[in-house]
């Protein structure tokens, strides 16, 4: 198992940060990204175009700093790219563009698009008889405000889309919150769910691999 340690990621993240202050969402995203890329996702720089790769869709595209740092740590992009994020010649924007960054599955930024794209990706893989790959979509709890997510949650549950995993990073940033917890919005539609401490890598790993293949799975991380 290759792990991306904090000592390895720290300097890469500093290159992206370039003196700016990052919000809590960047650091909470980093934990789940490390577990995903180190221990869960079957994808490497050599398999970014392999139709049987796992898919990771970053729906909350603003949480991009840790994503870029991790893609650099895992060899998807050269570390030099991190030094000029958002610059006129940069391939790394404040939101990622899938056509510019190797390993990035979707261009995101406007909230509420990743889960629908993830549902379609899972359906496409199913139509092709590819039962191996899983589709992981990372969202924020405030992003759940977007109604488009609820279209996707209801349909994925009703159609038993077992290859789909949604990850909701709960930073308590939704303006009106999710009384009863974000997970209940999924389970009422037939999803399995796990709510875990977003800093605990072993707990994250167990939750991220805790799906049963017969229904979609959601992992809610308690970040604050």
């Amino acid at each position: 198992m290759t792990t991306t340690t904090a000592t390895e990621l720290g300097p890469l993240l500093d290159r992206v940060r370039a003196g700016r202050e990052f919000g809590a969402n960047v650091y909470s995203t980093l934990d789940v990204l490390q577990v995903l890329y180190d221990r869960v996702l079957r994808i490497t720089p050599a398999t970014v175009d392999d139709p049987d790769r796992d898919r990771f869709l970053l729906s909350k595209g603003h949480a991009v700093a840790g994503y870029y740092a991790l893609l650099a740590a895992r060899g998807f992009v050269p570390p030099e790219w991190l030094d000029d994020q958002g610059g006129p010649a940069s391939r790394l924007g404040d939101h990622p563009d899938r056509t510019l960054v190797p390993g990035v599955e979707i261009g995101s930024g406007s909230l509420g698009h990743g889960l629908g794209l993830g549902v379609g990706t899972a359906l496409g893989l199913r139509a092709q008889g590819r039962t191996g790959p899983r589709v992981y979509v990372l969202l924020g709890d405030a992003e759940l405000d977007e109604g488009s997510n609820h279209e996707a949650i209801a349909y994925a549950g009703a159609s038993g889309l077992g290859s789909l995993t949604a990850i909701v990073l709960d930073n308590r940033s939704a303006t009106y919150g999710w009384p009863g917890g974000a997970a209940s919005r999924f389970t009422v539609n037939g999803w399995s769910a796990a709510t875990v401490d977003g800093r605990d890598h072993d707990a994250l790993h167990a939750a991220l691999t805790g799906h049963d293949d017969h229904r979609p799975h959601v992992v809610v991380t308690d970040g604050e």
């Binding site: 139709p51 599955e105 979707i106 509420g112 698009h113 889960l115 629908g116 794209l117 993830g118 549902v119 379609g120 990706t121 899972a122 359906l123 496409g124 893989l125 139509a127 092709q128 109604g147 488009s148 279209e151 996707a152 209801a154 349909y155 009703a158």
Partner: peptide, 20 residues
């Protein structure tokens, strides 16, 4: 997908990303 037009187009995008 039922009466869900946003999802309908999102699903189309995801399908196309897999080559459908």
């Amino acid at each position: 997908v039922g009466i869900r037009e946003q999802l309908m187009i999102g699903v189309a995008g995801g399908l196309a990303l897999t080559g459908q």
